[in-house]
Amino acid sequence: MGHGPAVKLGKDNASPYKAALGVKMFFAYTFVYAVFVALNSLSPATMEITFGGINLAVIYGVGLIVLALIMAVIYNIACCKAEARLNK
């Protein structure tokens, strides 16, 4: 059995752009996640601060999940545009 993709893939000139964008967005998200872990482990009392009756721990945790979706959608839009532009 040879190697290579299960289906024949076309040439993708947008790959370098998408990879570079992915790395940048990965580091941005990782930073936000790292702050979350640091606050929970090093300063848990900070997470008790409330905003509108909801504490920071819940807002930050749910926020990380929502942020993941928002960043994923932005990434997809940017990738789709790059594919349309570079793979004409």
Partner: peptide, 10 residues
């Protein structure tokens, strides 16, 4: 869930 960002971006 955060682990999926590694999957998506990289």
């Amino acid at each position: 869930l955060a682990g999926w960002m590694v999957a998506l971006f990289l």
